[in-house]
Design a protein around this nucleic acid. Structure first.
Lengths: 223, 223
DNA sequence: CGCGCCTTGGTGACAATGTCACCGACGTGC
DNA sequence: GCACGTCGGTGACATTGTCACCAAGGCGCG
């Protein structure tokens, strides 16, 4: 019970909203649970609700008409799908899709409630615009990286990001190539080079970081 | 006089707003004129107003910390700087800058008026969110192009875009390389190849399209 | 178990693109 | 005329992308 009545307070960006706004969010939203590996939205599959992620992560990626894939960004617990949903509402024909990477718990807010909140609460407006701004500046950074950053630097950076607090990443060369928008062979060669230097260890379907310091040094060098 | 009182009606996205909203926009905004080549916003230079472009174009580009530059998008007459301005307000430390490519006439709307309009008018909200969505989907497309599209295809596409209705483009290889986020030498080689095929003609500081059909065929082939 | 079949990763050859160093041609200001 | 900066050309080389193909591991199924 307390789960459904207090999720707003556990949401970093929303906890400072006015009390009536919180109540509106709580009473008019539905908490949903989605298993991992589900496609939440994608081409021809627009969601009718705005989602606020309470737990889990959603991966947003894009399939090019050339058949290539690239991961655009991730939505973590405490963030909202506002922009993606808004995009879908405005432009049907875009190719990005959102996939749950883990089991996800989210609060679904209907479109009209969202519009109502934007109209009535200045702090909610700030929250929404801040989310948009953050996303756009992140996309700017991503364009810069894809266009100008060396691949070894980007891979080292991505390995550290994916490892988080663990030392072993359960992933394949293929998945890593989608993360960076490159080819599987290229990832294989770079990982071999990292392994040759003793920075990582590989086995089928997993990469283990041995020397995080050196990886970080490479990643930060030109970032 | 009629210029200052009717710009809202000449603005495609705003002409269908409610009458009171239009009045608010007109009375609380200032029409400004800026010469070409001016940096409207950039690092450490946040504008305090939202701009609605009445005439001219603004080029938004980014300087990487590696020294590379890339053009992110352009704002044309009839569009607004909403998102760029919003971004600047939220995150000071980003590296994009906006430069007027021609003499520009714009309506400047103070931040509090903008906020007021978002609160009061549903159609204005739709206008703003549509602008954000369009920008984000365009950035998605750009990431796809930078990551996966061949350079000859992108260059052919860009040449056609820059030519618009004319046949001769006044630009340098250096500027074209910034448009695509690549190196000047690469542009030089590609243009030589296009010239060898008889598709274009070059002279110092200008490119003339001779066979737009072939260029378009290359550009559309994988787009 | 043996047998397909898919996934995962390795490899070499080659193409496309990026980087670097350097050059000459052109234009501008003095 | 001369110095200087901009513009574009060139060759050598490094990095990255593409393609074709291969071998090992895992999985289901008779």
């Amino acid at each position: 019970m307390s789960m459904e009545t207090e999720w707003v307070d556990r949401f970093p960006g929303l906890s400072r909203l006015e009390e009536p706004v919180k109540q509106l969010l709580l009473t008019r939203s539905t908490v949903i649970n989605v298993p991992g590996g589900t496609t939440i939205f994608g081409p021809g599959n627009s969601p009718e609700n705005m989602l606020f992620l309470l737990d889990g992560t959603v991966r947003v990626q894009q399939v090019s008409d050339t058949g290539h894939e690239i991961v655009l960004y991730r939505i973590h617990a405490g963030q909202s799908c506002v922009l993606t949903t808004a995009c879908l509402l405005a432009y049907e024909n875009y190719s990005a899709e959102g996939i749950t990477e883990t089991a996800v718990q989210a609060a679904a807010v209907p479109r009209d409630v969202f519009d109502d909140l934007v109209a009535k609460s200045k702090s909610f407006r700030n929250f929404v615009f801040a989310a948009f701004s953050k996303r756009i500046t992140d996309l700017f950074l991503m364009i810069d990286e894809v266009a100008f950053q060396r691949l070894d630097v980007r891979l080292a950076d991505k390995l550290i990001e994916l490892a988080a607090d663990k030392d072993t990443i359960a992933t394949t060369h293929q998945k890593l190539s989608v993360e960076l928008g490159t080819a599987r062979e290229v990832i294989s060669r770079q990982l071999q080079e990292f392994q040759r230097r003793g920075w990582i260890e590989q086995s089928r379907g997993s990469v283990t970081l041995l020397d995080r310091t050196q990886l970080a040094r490479l990643a930060d060098h030109n970032s």
